[in-house]
């Protein structure tokens, strides 16, 4: 634990740890600030993937990123998930634990995607309660990621940025700011992406995500951006990242790539670009 705390990768860039890269990483130990895993991919597993994680955590700090806690589920939190997460946390000592401002569980099952919630008083009370439960159970702070979304609800009364900020201020949770998600949602809902970043207090942001997205065009000629994590980070998202850094959001940054995954070098190349943004800021203000 002591050695990992010493490795706490403040202002370093990491990448999402995905199965196609496992062997390469073990054999080559490439330079990388840290790796982020999808927590539930390893729950209830005792196979080669977990054995790999035992080896990888010796050389790299890990963060745990969940997509299955379903903090916004009206049916309550899945206690089994929290128990698995805690057990897992006590084995690998992640330096960050995060999940999303979304829901996925209903009627005893889970949708394999992050579904949006209406930003209402009811949702706020539910999230505040669930985040408090989760943080109390885990005994540590959680990070909450802004989702990419393709729809808004008529009944929403908060903006997303206000909802997220107020929620974190109330619960003590922090923000995992996904810049690509800000860009995707802003495009899909005609928001101002920079105004979104302006509404987020920099001191609440403890991690940043960067990723690629795709354009989906419909038969009626309308189109939406989709958060596919299947390509390089686009210029507009790099620009927003620079804007966030200039606002003081100099925090561990992750490159996510989950579909059409390139060779590890391709991922490392994106990480180097992100690191250059962080390094420039540190030189200028360090």
């Amino acid at each position: 634990m002591d050695s990992l705390e010493a490795l706490n990768p403040e202002a370093l860039v990491g990448v999402g740890l995905r199965r196609p890269h496992h062997s390469f990483i073990l054999e080559n130990k490439p330079p990388m600030g840290w790796f982020e895993i999808i927590s539930e991919n390893y729950f209830k597993k005792d196979g080669p993937s977990l054995s790999f994680l035992d080896k990888i955590c010796v050389d790299y700090p890990l963060s745990f990123h969940g997509i299955g806690l379903s903090l916004g589920s009206a049916e309550g939190l899945d206690k089994g998930y929290l128990s698995s997460l805690k057990e897992f946390m006590n084995r690998f000592f992640p330096f960050l634990i995060s999940d999303h401002l979304s829901w996925s569980n209903v009627q005893g099952g889970a949708f394999p995607t992050l579904l949006p919630i209406p930003y209402t008083d009811e949702s706020f009370a539910l999230f505040a309660d669930h985040i408090a439960q989760a943080q109390d159970f885990l005994g540590r702070e959680m990070l909450l990621e802004n989702p990419s979304s393709y729809l808004e609800y008529k009944e929403s009364t908060f903006s997303e940025a206000d909802f997220l900020t107020t929620l974190c201020q109330k619960t003590g949770a922090k923000i995992l700011l996904d810049i690509n998600n800000v860009f995707v949602s802003a495009s899909n809902h005609e928001w101002d992406a920079k105004a979104y970043l302006d509404a987020i207090p920099p001191e609440l942001v403890k991690e940043i995500h960067l990723a690629g997205h795709s354009l989906r065009t419909f038969d009626d000629g309308t189109a939406l951006l989709v958060d596919t994590h299947s390509s390089r980070v686009c210029d507009e998202v790099w620009e927003l990242y620079a804007y966030a850094i200039a606002r003081g959001m100099v925090v561990p940054t992750l490159i996510e790539w989950d579909d059409e995954i390139p060779e590890f070098e391709g991922l490392a190349h994106e990480a180097k670009i992100a690191q250059s943004y962080l390094d420039t800021r540190q030189v200028a203000y360090g």
């Binding site: 379903s70 998930y81 698995s84 569980n105 209903v106 009627q107 099952g109 889970a110």
Partner: peptide
């Protein structure tokens, strides 16, 4: 067909 919560695809 939804998997169990936690995306338990076992």
């Amino acid at each position: 067909l939804l998997p169990a919560p936690s995306f338990d695809f076992d």
